[in-house]
Amino acid sequence: MSGQKKRSFLNEAFKHQVVFFQECVEKTWKILEHAIHEIYNHNLSSFSFEEVYRHAYNMVVHNFGEKLYSGLLTTMTYHVKEMFKLIEAAQGELFLEELNRNWAEHNKAVQMIRDILVYMDRNFIPSTPKTPVREFGLNLWMDVVIDASKTRSRLLDTLLELVHREMSGEVINRGLMRNIIKMLMDLGFTVYQDDFEKHFLKVSADF
């Protein structure tokens, strides 16, 4: 008899939770959206991991995984576009520096997002044909920043110019150069090959 009671009690609790959650799903998403913004603004240290993680977990468990995922994509895209504006505006040698700085920040942000949305990454995405967060982060950077009309040629020119200067005996910022090359490698070997290696080999040969 007591088993029966316990059972129905628990049922009530679950029913309550479901109904309750449907009412506040918007609110929950707003909190998560805010958290993602704050990740890009380096302001996350005041947030409670427990709270953010719990909200993300609730959204997935209550069948709002779709909403969470698409919301995440929109927010991330917005920020990467903002970054691109900064990169585009940078002139001369600052261009590479800005690119490198933003790339590092983007990576850090993606890692943070993976941390707080690990439940979605692990439980929701594999059951759908969706791209995992990390991969999406790379693709996004590729699409928004690297594939933008001017970036490729600008990046190539700047890099080759650096190479040229080094070959002529100037001291260049090798660390920066290494980071940028590493970024191209991270984005995929073909990207590195197409965008840099071929031209580099050609220029070296010319030299």
Partner: peptide, 14 residues
Amino acid sequence: LPFAKMFTNGMSET
């Protein structure tokens, strides 16, 4: 893993 992240990723619990 979530607890590990909670304690190390720089948010308030860290």
